[in-house]
Design a protein around this nucleic acid. Structure first.
Lengths: 172, 172
DNA sequence: CATCAAAATGAATAAATACGCAAATTTTTG
DNA sequence: CAAAAATTTGCGTATTTATTCATTTTGATG
């Protein structure tokens, strides 16, 4: 919890919450992607150094929420890692409105598969190449199917978010 | 340790080691890719049912060795999963017989790449779209190459299994 | 701004997991 | 084949992580 505590006098105390949990979660992501952390206690310490004060219980919940996994690296140490897309066991295929060009968007691992009206995959892929640079690593299009490789650490929500920015027919 | 102990008489005892740890590790992989396991105790039980007798300590080591990670799925449960990097690192390309249309099948992560006789990729992809719905999320074909996205939680064996159902030239 | 509902958090503790060490097993060597 | 070296394993336990319950904080609403 990031709090700016301003003591105005010995009785009053204004606490200004600078928007919170979200920031902390981001900090956690940054730490574990940037360095080797072997336990929650350790991570807790690093967070403290960044100004985040919390208990192991909360951290445990945060890690669960972020789908962070503890596994071992090649050196035989345990490390925390952002759980890759594989985690999403349930492969939800969000089919959207339209009826127009884009017909459905599905996910499997770090791949998004978009089905389009026959013949339109290629042109839509160009759109994506043009506007989805932040979330997609690249795309390949067939006649009515696009396979798009999602960048690491980009969530499916963010993908949909991005797509809907330039595909009007796509609404959550 | 899997041992077949044959008591021939009350003095002699032949122990036949049926090759070991490796098998157990394979079994562990199979179990965790095939089902949702939430704790080592639970996995231990499943292994016991398969005839593997071991303690939690050993299992912990096995999981470390296999780089299995415990993380949470979308349902909020904890599950064990094979660390994704591993999947991609063992990028084994199984080349099959034929000489006819399908020339090879390779895997990388959850992607299967099929090489065909030039010009046949598209038609074969149609075949796959038609018959491989359970294992593939979608395909894209070029001239002699098909990129097929494998559904989550479908093993490579299952992919081959499925393909061989409608591609006669494909034999394990 | 008082009040109710929902979300977040900590403290304590239960549950799960990893590890040190010694024993057992397997592999290597002479 | 015996001895030595290396690997594997279980037991006991320390360490680590998740959860319950109570409390606090945040958000919404009249």
């Amino acid at each position: 919890m990031y709090i700016c505590a301003l003591f105005l006098n010995k009785y009053s105390l204004i606490t200004v919450d600078v928007k919170n949990k979200t920031k902390r979660l981001t900090a956690i992501k940054e730490i574990i992607t940037g360095s080797v952390v072997g336990s929650q206690e350790e991570l807790l310490q690093l967070l403290l150094e960044k100004g985040y004060e919390l208990t192991q219980a909360t951290l445990s919940r945060d890690l669960k929420h972020l789908k962070v996994a503890k596994t071992s690296n090649t050196s035989g140490e345990y490390v925390y890692q952002l759980a890759p897309q594989i985690n999403e066991r349930e492969e939800k295929t969000s089919v959207f409105s339209s009826g127009n060009i884009l017909r459905s968007v599905g996910f499997s691992g770090n791949i998004a598969v978009l089905h389009t009206r026959p013949g339109y995959a290629s042109s839509m892929a160009s759109e994506i190449d043009e506007n989805g640079k932040e979330v997609f690593l690249g795309t390949v299009a067939g006649d009515d199917t696009i396979i798009a490789v999602i960048r690491e650490n980009v969530t499916r929500e963010e993908v949909i978010e991005n797509l809907s920015e330039f595909i009007p027919e796509l609404t959550k």
